[in-house]
């Protein structure tokens, strides 16, 4: 039940982001400087943190979507839906932690310079 709610919330969230993202990318058709200016926003630490949230939302929705597809089309899918949810949650954490680390590291290095 809660995974269904989370699937719906993340789906709607990502849809709204897609709207904004197509508009900001469309600036490549206006001028290089206006595109670069808006992309600078994505590089700021706060927005970068929000991007980590976006990646988390997409990752959850994507993994849960695959689970839904397996429940619908794999003959043993309904029987193993609970186990698949646990696998999904493990994958979510295992993939999100290094992804978030890398994303925040890039931003920290730009802010403070590389440690090495």
């Amino acid at each position: 039940m809660w995974s269904w709610v989370a699937h719906r919330i993340t789906g709607v969230l990502v849809f709204f982001f897609l709207f904004a993202h197509v508009l900001d990318t469309a600036l490549v058709r206006v001028s290089p400087s206006s595109y670069n200016e808006v992309i600078e926003v994505y590089k700021s630490p706060i927005v970068n943190l929000l991007e980590v949230g976006l990646v988390a939302a997409v990752l959850f929705h994507a993994l849960n979507g695959i689970r839904i597809i397996l429940i619908d089309f794999w003959e043993s899918g309904p029987k193993y839906q609970k186990q698949m949810l646990y696998i999904e949650l493990v994958l979510f954490v295992v993939l999100l932690v290094p992804a978030a680390y890398r994303m925040l590291l890039h931003t920290a290095e730009t802010l403070f310079g590389s440690a090495t």
């Binding site: 670069n36 992309i39 994505y42 590089k43 990646v55 994507a62 931003t107």
Partner: peptide, 27 residues
């Protein structure tokens, strides 16, 4: 959904994680 799994996650990986992430994105 199945196609987007590869397209979107690949896009996020290339744009945000690979090399310098968003920090290297510009015109």
């Amino acid at each position: 959904g199945l196609l987007l799994f590869f397209l979107v996650l690949g896009h996020l990986f290339i744009m945000n994680i690979l090399d310098g992430g968003v920090q290297r994105v510009n015109f």
